[in-house]
Design a protein around this nucleic acid. Structure first.
Lengths: 161, 161
DNA sequence: ACTAATTTTTAGGTATGCCTAAATTATATT
DNA sequence: AATATAATTTAGGCATACCTAAAAATTAGT
């Protein structure tokens, strides 16, 4: 498996915290299928770096700093996944790819993708060009334009219409 | 820096090979700003795993297996970069992000992105909805539809027109 | 409250991907 | 061809992210 990042851990901590706080080494270990002893080391490091509050045998809770990163990372994940699903990537793969890409992507790219998702979701059922893309993806053919009025505009299948 | 993958090395080898073959440890070391001694180790590993032909003091050349991966990786890189540029990401950032994403992305996602880039590039100057997206990105506003005929169809600003 | 079972930590180990310093080989100059 | 210089490899080191086994602390059953 790819080297796990701080982001991975605070994200997971954030999710587990919702059910039970504080989160113990075993909770993480069982989810990630790693040894509890390894989690202890990770907790010590995250604690040192100010992402969690951790005391021996006491489990961990995210600090503000940690929570901030967790939320930001989850937001990135969510946007990436939404974007990939728009493109037609399967749920599971979208989720896995989002999980990997979220740790490496530049803020500018995230901003563009965020706006793109917003732009697409503005149209109920997606904009018409997206249907055309899907048709193209399946068949390799481009749909010829047959429109004559606004109502059929392939761009403006607009929520407010 | 992120851990470099086999893909990184064969890709670089592929590029350097074009100028001068075989590629020596120093060539790689100076590009990546790492120690030549480290490159020796990497060459030994790549040689063991069949990606390059390497002999002590003799430099390295890609095997077929290595070249195949290099080409596939470069193709992924190219598609990712094109896609990001379509979205409006700056050249440099597009390049850097492509370089990171290419190593983690699922084949299915690559396929969707490849088709998407093809789909967009089919229109000279890009499809009209892309202008609309850029407008939306800049202003936060959606352009209202004012079309009445095919010629102005925002989707079909078609190369063959 | 005592003992058993469970959880957690400590101590020590492995593989990887880099490093530096020193040794070795190859190349260039004369 | 001998020697100086440059390139390359070897040997040994460091940090990280995991591991196992054993010790220590906590929790649960009676």
């Amino acid at each position: 498996m790819r080297k796990r990042t701080i982001e991975d851990y605070v994200e997971l901590l954030y999710d587990l915290q919702k059910n039970k706080k504080p989160v113990h080494t075993n909770d993480i270990a069982s989810v990630l299928n790693i040894n509890p002893a390894s989690v202890t080391e990770i907790f010590q490091k995250l604690n040192n770096d100010g992402y969690i509050n951790y005391e021996k045998y006491g489990g961990a809770t995210l600090t503000q700093k940690g929570e901030k990163i967790a939320i930001a990372t989850k937001k990135k994940h969510d946007t990436l996944k939404k974007f990939l699903k728009i493109l037609g990537v399967d749920e599971k793969i979208a989720d896995m790819d989002a999980c990997k890409i979220e740790h490496v992507v530049d803020p500018m790219t995230m901003e563009k993708l965020t706006k793109f998702v917003e732009f697409v979701q503005r149209f109920k059922g997606g904009p018409r060009w997206l249907d055309h893309f899907k048709y193209f993806y399946e068949t390799g053919k481009y749909i010829e334009c047959t429109l004559i009025d606004t109502a059929k505009c392939p761009f403006h299948r607009h929520k407010s219409q």
